[in-house]
Write a protein that binds this DNA or RNA. Structure first.
Length: 293
RNA sequence: GGCCCGGUAGCUCAGUUGGUAGAGCAACGGACUGAAAAUCCGUGUGUCGCCGGUUCAAUCCCGGCUUGGGCCA
């Protein structure tokens, strides 16, 4: 059985997952796209080893900061661990707010090996021309992707060039059940309360030395790492480059976190059969009920 | 006490030479298959401060009141 502990940022998922793991004798698989990276600590609110209380964490703090992790790699890594833990009958707690990572690991998402290709000519195109180019090779995909969504348009073209298939031909299995037996839990919060928690968390991060952490990392790795897409890092880098003041950086982090939480809520609402709970007892009760009914 | 400027969306403000109004931010809703803490899309009825007057018609013009700011006493 896989217990997925997810939901928006700043709701206290980590502590819930550790308590649940202890009570079930389970192990945790990280499903947070930025907790995989080494070195991102304060800004990602990464739980500390001493808080684990002996609970084993997988896929956590193991990728070099200048490496580029992806959902395809995560799927592969996560499934290996899932299979192993299932074989050994160990309850699995999948913990994290990265909805697409969870989706890719637990559902029938398909990724093929692909070659690196040079997208330079497409990079140079404006949004409209780029979208026209996609339309020429994959009409259906173009219809589904808004021309302004440059990243997705580009990716659809890349799929065609690197895999020789159209993006729209990849089987998308909607409303399909997960590949494993699993249940999805999130911690229930009033949205206003959540927004207040975000303000105090970000303020705390600043007091704990977020600027110092980002400064050290950017000096060591440069400013252009994929890992620095994380909220809390990109805004501080802007500040260190002199683009924004410290106060602006702080308020940018707060509003970006808020927007992110909102997007997560939308994603979970539609993608997973969520159970919103207030305590770990709720999880155990619901899971038990689900098994016996 | 006198003079001047303001009161329009949750916030900051546009605007209507009189025909009941719109930007940014915020908020809310949504999409999501190799960067996902990413990327993108959609949604604006608000006593236009209050009360009167003029007018076919007032958020706009006129008078009074109220309220905030500034200047002068």
């Amino acid at each position: 059985m896989i217990y997925v502990i997810t939901g928006p940022t700043c709701t206290g998922k980590d502590a819930f997952a550790i308590e649940l793991a202890k009570r079930l004798g389970g192990e945790i698989i990280n499903a947070d796209a930025f907790h995989v990276y080494k070195g991102l600590i304060i800004g990602t609110n990464k739980p500390k080893e001493e808080d684990f209380q002996g609970v084993k964490h997988h896929l956590f703090d193991f990728i070099e900061l200048d490496d580029n992790y992806s959902i395809a790699r995560y799927q592969k890594d996560a499934r290996l661990i899932i299979e192993d833990l299932l074989d050994r009958n160990i309850p699995i707690i999948m913990l994290g707010g990265s909805g697409l990572y969870i989706k890719a690991a637990l559902f029938d998402y398909r990724f093929k090996e692909e070659d690196k290709i040079d997208m330079a000519i497409y990079d140079a195109m404006d949004n409209k021309t780029l979208h026209e180019s996609l339309k020429a090779i994959d009409h259906a995909a173009a219809n589904n992707i808004h021309p302004n969504n440059r990243r997705r348009v580009m990716r659809a073209i890349q799929i065609f060039l690197a895999q020789g298939i159209r993006k729209s031909d990849i089987p998308i299995l909607r409303n399909e059940r997960p590949l494993y037996e699993c249940m999805f839990f999130g911690i229930e919060f009033d949205r206003g309360d959540l927004y207040l928690r975000i303000v105090s968390r970000v303020t705390r991060m600043m007091n704990e030395g977020l600027i110092r952490e980002v400064k050290q990392l950017s000096e060591k790795y440069g400013d252009n790492q994929q890992a620095f897409n994380a909220i809390g890092y990109k805004e501080i880098i802007e500040h260190l480059q002199g683009i924004t003041s410290k106060e602006e950086a702080l308020s940018n982090i707060i509003s970006n976190t808020r927007h992110y939480a909102k997007r997560q809520i939308t994603f979970f609402r539609h993608q997973f059969d969520m159970h919103w709970v207030k305590t770990v007892d709720d999880i155990i009760r619901i899971a038990h009920h689900g098994k016996t009914s």
